[in-house]
Computed example of a mutant assay.
Amino acid sequence: MEADVSVIMPAAGLSLRMGAGVRKPFIMIGEKPIFFYTLEKFCKLERVKEIIFVVNEKDRSTVIEKWSDALKEYKVTKIVTGGERRMDSIYNGLSHLDPDTEIVLIHDAVRPLVKSGEIEAVIKSAEEKGAAILASPMKLTVKQVNSNLEIIKTIPRHDLWMAQTPQGFKRDLLVNAYDGVKGTNEEFTDDAEVVEKAGHTVGIVSGSYDNIKITTREDLKLAESLLVKC
């Protein structure tokens, strides 16, 4: 029997780099906001039983007022307030998981170009290994520099991968890992790092370079052009 999957979709970031006057997930592309394109990729998968949408406290009432009815059609069962840091937002989402959830996927609301096959591959790998993330091999040459912007050394790229989402985990493994860092001042850039900190190995699933996180206006233009083709 296939494991039930829940998705936590964080959308609570400050969006400072975009400078659009509205948080990135709510920027319109065509006739709908970015996060609806992202939700579509997950709600179509039969194994996904629920999506927990994590938003900034300032946005929650607006999201409920504008989209609560529509979100039900996208399997969004809860609209949860995020925390000060991303890890706090994810922890809040974990506390609202359905009791029957076995696999948890975490995916950025502003990665609308992820492919269904990639999502399914992460789920399968998480079932087998306990933890897995989507990532792509590093293509660029990476330089380590000092405070004067002078090159110290070139970092070999053959074993470097760029982390993406979704990131998938067995529920108990992820919850226990987050419980272990709750209340600390440590900063974690993604969920895999929290699980690594707890001593667990995380597998890699090769993903597409198109699966960008929309952060800048240039990213937005690229996403607009690619979503039109989809």
Score class of each variant (00 low, 15 high):
F26H: 02
P137Q: 07
V194K: 00
D69W: 11
A163D: 03
E196M: 12
G21N: 09
T165M: 03
F26W: 02
G21Y: 08
I79Y: 02
E196R: 13
I152S: 09
K44M: 13
R157H: 09
T77D: 09
E127F: 07
A109H: 04
E193C: 09
K213M: 15
T184D: 05
E50H: 05
I103S: 02
E127R: 08
E186G: 12
M138D: 05
F42A: 03
Y178W: 06
E65A: 13
V104R: 00
Q144I: 14
A198M: 05
P10Y: 00
D172I: 10
I204N: 02
D159T: 10
R47D: 08
L39S: 01
L97H: 06
D219Y: 02
A223T: 05
E102P: 07
I64Q: 15
A177P: 03
A223F: 02
K182D: 07
A223P: 04
F35D: 05
V122Q: 01
K44R: 15
W161M: 07
V181M: 07
V205N: 00
A135T: 03
K229C: 11
H96G: 08
M1Q: 11
S68W: 10
A20S: 12
M162N: 12
K124Y: 11
A223Y: 02
V181G: 01
P166R: 01
I52R: 06
D108F: 03
I8R: 01
L140V: 15
K182S: 09
R111Y: 01
I27P: 00
A70D: 14
Q167K: 09
S95L: 14
N185K: 15
K49Y: 04
S89A: 11
I90N: 00
L97G: 05
L220N: 04
A135C: 09
K66V: 10
I106A: 02
E40A: 11
Y209A: 04
V54M: 02
G203V: 06
K229H: 10
K153I: 10
Q167I: 10
D4K: 14
T81W: 09
E31Q: 13
G82Q: 01
T201F: 13
M9N: 04
M18E: 07
S125G: 08
P166D: 07
I151Y: 07
A223Q: 03
V202W: 00
R17Y: 14
K139R: 15
V205H: 01
D69G: 09
S136I: 04
F26K: 01
C230N: 15
H200I: 10
P99R: 11
L16E: 15
I27C: 04
V181W: 04
M9S: 05
K129G: 08
E31K: 15
A131G: 02
M1D: 13
K229S: 14
G82D: 02
Q144K: 15
A20P: 05
D98H: 12
I52M: 08
E84G: 10
N146K: 09
Q144H: 14
A163E: 05
D100V: 13
G30R: 07
M1A: 13
N56G: 12
D190E: 10
V7C: 07
K221V: 12
T154V: 15
K229Q: 13
D108Q: 07
V122P: 00
T62Y: 14
V7M: 06
I204E: 03
